[in-house]
């Protein structure tokens, strides 16, 4: 039953869609989103392959709780410790935000390692995903440095001395080692300048780098596609005994599914 829209309805629809069309005309976002959401992934992907999304989630938790903490934290040796106490004891739900940031950091690190282990197990770092792996390793290193810079911020005894030794070790390095050491320290002793520098690195420089690299990482993941588990009998890209064309070996496992009816025969 063909319903013809009244001119009025058409007008309303056009008005509502106008901003979307405006945006799409300039960015192509509609096609981009459509591709992102409805692109196919191998049908045999498994739960281990959600570790990347889990890592991203832990990072987002760090970003959100970090922004809130920065509203109350004071990067100065005289008040840093007290501001942490204030956040924990006085600010509404401050303990939760600080606790999530603190434990989220550990979760982020653990998940990065697990995610890397999964990629290693699947051999997913091989052609053509080498660059995705390299950026992942850079993310791991930056994430560890983010942990190191954040550790000093509460300005407590353990963190202070661990940072003293950490910077000394850094300054040991050949070539640029002493240079980086003195930049981190910002003076002869670890003090207000060091704390300000760690704060700035922890809040601006490193998170900025992490976000940029995560963006490239995700772009590459979407562009190159995710691998099938290598032991899967129906792995995408598996070698066939016969010729390239899909043959009888697939019959009975799953029907060749045209786009749009992919739910048939899909287990997961």
């Amino acid at each position: 039953m063909a319903t013809r829209k009244s001119p009025r309805q058409q007008q309303v629809e056009a008005a509502l869609l106008y901003p979307v069309d405006w945006l799409d005309e300039r960015t192509g976002i509609r096609a981009g989103l459509q591709y992102f959401l409805f692109r196919n992934v191998p049908r045999d992907t498994n739960w281990m392959q959600t570790l990347g999304a889990a890592t991203l989630t832990a990072f987002l938790v760090q970003a959100v709780t970090g922004v809130i903490l920065a509203m109350y934290y004071k990067p100065d040796p005289n008040s840093a410790y007290e501001s942490i106490k204030h956040i924990t004891n006085d600010v509404t739900l401050g303990w939760l935000v600080r606790g999530m940031h603190r434990w989220g950091a550990s979760c982020f690190i653990i998940l990065m390692f697990l995610h890397m282990g999964r990629v290693f197990l699947f051999g997913a770092y091989k052609y053509p995903r080498e660059l995705t792996w390299i950026i992942g390793v850079m993310l791991l290193a930056l994430g560890m440095i983010e942990g190191f810079t954040g550790y000093l911020l509460p300005w407590d005894e353990t963190a202070y001395w661990a940072t003293v030794v950490g910077i000394n070790i850094q300054a040991n390095g050949p070539f640029v080692g002493p240079f980086i050491g003195s930049i981190l320290k910002g003076g002869a002793e670890i003090g207000p300048e060091t704390l300000a520098r760690f704060y700035s690195l922890h809040m601006l420089a490193i998170p900025g780098g992490l976000m940029a690299l995560i963006g490239i990482h995700l772009f590459l993941v979407v562009r190159l596609g995710i691998t099938s588990p290598p032991w899967s009998p129906v792995a995408a890209g598996r070698e066939r005994d016969g010729e390239e064309a899909p043959t009888a070996d697939r019959v009975g496992l799953v029907e060749p599914t045209p786009r749009g009816s992919a739910s048939q025969g899909v287990e997961k």
Binding site: F36, L37, F38, R39, N40, V41, P42, R43, G225, V234, A236, G237, R238, P246, R250, V254, P256, T257, R259, A262, S263, V266
Partner: peptide, 10 residues
């Protein structure tokens, strides 16, 4: 293979 027999991300 992914195009032919994969499942949509969403």
């Amino acid at each position: 293979d992914v195009k032919r027999e994969g499942k949509p991300f969403f």
